[in-house]
């Protein structure tokens, strides 16, 4: 199995806080597929810096309010 990136995110939580925005709507807004949004939310994929900025700007929060480094990760 592919190694999970040691990056946490609050994308699902932020979607819910923004009028229950759908995964498809978020995907379209940032220019990726719905499957990629699902993979990000499940922690199976770390988005590019560009997409990370697009997500944070869409929700009107800072980058570190969306993404964080997993505590206890060997590389922390």
């Amino acid at each position: 199995m592919a190694k999970r990136p040691p990056i946490t995110n609050r994308v699902k939580e932020l979607r819910a806080a923004h009028d229950e925005m759908s995964q498809a709507a978020l995907a379209e807004a940032i220019g990726v597929t719905r499957q990629t949004v699902i993979a990000i939310e499940q922690g199976r994929y770390s988005p590019s810096l560009e997409s990370a900025f697009r997500i944070s700007r869409l929700f009107g929060v800072g980058l570190e309010d969306v993404f964080g480094w997993e505590e206890g990760s060997p590389d922390a």
Binding site: G31, V32, T33, Q35, T36, A39, Y45, P47, S48, E50, S51
Partner: peptide
């Protein structure tokens, strides 16, 4: 979806 270009993950 079939007409959409591959995104960064794909």
């Amino acid at each position: 979806e079939a007409n959409a270009p591959a995104d960064e993950r794909e």
